[in-house]
Amino acid sequence: MSASKHLSDLTARIIPCLDVAAGRVVKGTNFKQLIDMGDPVELALKYEQQGADELVFLDIKASVDHQPSALTMVQNVAMNLSIPFAVGGGIKTMDDVHRFFNAGADKVTLNTMAVTEPDLINQISRQYGSQSIVVAIDVNREDGGELSVYTHGGSQRTTLDYHHWVREVVDRGAGEILLTAMHKDGTGTGFDCGLLNELGADYPIQVIASGGANGPEDFLQAIQAGADAVLAAGIFHRNEYTVKDIKDFLIQHQIPMRTTP
């Protein structure tokens, strides 16, 4: 699959992901063994200065009890940040959606609730537009090779057929799919380009690749495989690469990028 889509279509995006637990940014391997990485607002500003196109905040330990602190975080981020950001975790109803948008989020991300209450995708798309809704799909390649969809922060395996679910998400009005290959998450072995190739560069909605970034070459391969955006966490949080490092490499390989003045 070539990167020709991105030469004539939207510019490919680089999106740092900030997994948040109890008000702090954390990072783990295969969604486990979480390590504290810092303050959400401080990290958000750092990534904006490095040239990030967007940010994604995922409250990975979200519950109703934690939502007030999550809303406070969103308000603080919105007051300090000028690039778009999405928020996910603990969103169960349209009232929750309203609260996060009112707090300043540009997009909401659904995962578990998209599976358990799929009509919520339709409702958000109708009220706020498809560009406001990102559906996160956590998919794991099992030992037998089959693809399984997981919810609840990667802890519960569903009976969904992965390919049917991807199609349904599009049909229900999502603007983007955040596709996380759980078997790649935190491993540093590169993105699952096979999954991206399956969807292809002409997929009807934007696809964000997630899970497995180790260096600039992985971002290039993901975009060449059809990703519209590439999301990563650990390599940025650990200061192994800056967003600018990744973008400079991609520009050198003829991938159009938004550059920071």
Rank of each mutant, 00 (worst) to 15 (best):
S155G: 03
G153V: 13
G153I: 11
D9N: 04
E117A: 14
V243S: 07
E217Q: 14
V115G: 14
C193W: 01
R24V: 07
A201G: 08
Q127I: 06
I177L: 03
H6T: 05
I15C: 03
G186C: 03
I133E: 02
K247S: 11
D95R: 08
H6W: 09
A22I: 00
R141P: 00
L58A: 03
T260E: 08
D218T: 06
L58F: 02
F236V: 03
Q67C: 00
T159S: 13
H98E: 12
F191W: 12
V87W: 15
A227C: 05
T187R: 14
T180H: 03
P261T: 08
R141T: 10
A86T: 13
R157V: 15
E198Q: 12
R126N: 03
L34V: 08
I251R: 13
V139I: 11
G51T: 09
L179T: 00
A22W: 03
A22E: 15
I133K: 05
P68W: 10
P216C: 04
L45M: 13
V97C: 06
G234N: 10
H163S: 02
D119F: 04
L250I: 04
F100H: 14
R99D: 03
I91A: 02
R167M: 11
V169A: 06
R141F: 00
V135N: 04
V20H: 12
D96F: 00
M113T: 11
V87S: 08
I133G: 05
H152F: 10
D171S: 05
D119I: 01
V139L: 05
V243H: 03
K46Q: 14
I251M: 14
N197A: 12
V87K: 10
N197P: 02
H183P: 05
K46P: 11
S69G: 04
S210W: 05
I208G: 14
I83L: 09
I14F: 11
T72M: 13
I137T: 11
P261V: 09
Q49C: 03
I177G: 00
Q33K: 15
G38C: 09
L7S: 13
L58E: 02
A213M: 08
V20P: 01
V149L: 07
V20A: 10
Q254H: 08
H163M: 01
A233K: 07
V20W: 12
Q224L: 09
A232M: 06
D245E: 13
Q156R: 01
I137D: 07
G194V: 09
P16M: 06
P40S: 00
R258N: 02
G90I: 12
V115H: 14
V230T: 15
G215H: 10
I223E: 05
A52G: 04
S4F: 05
H163I: 00
G38T: 11
E168A: 03
A12I: 07
D95L: 05
F31Q: 04
S130M: 06
A62K: 02
V139C: 09
M257Q: 15
R24H: 13
V77G: 00
A86F: 06
I15E: 01
I35T: 12
T109R: 01
T29P: 01
Y150D: 06
D119G: 01
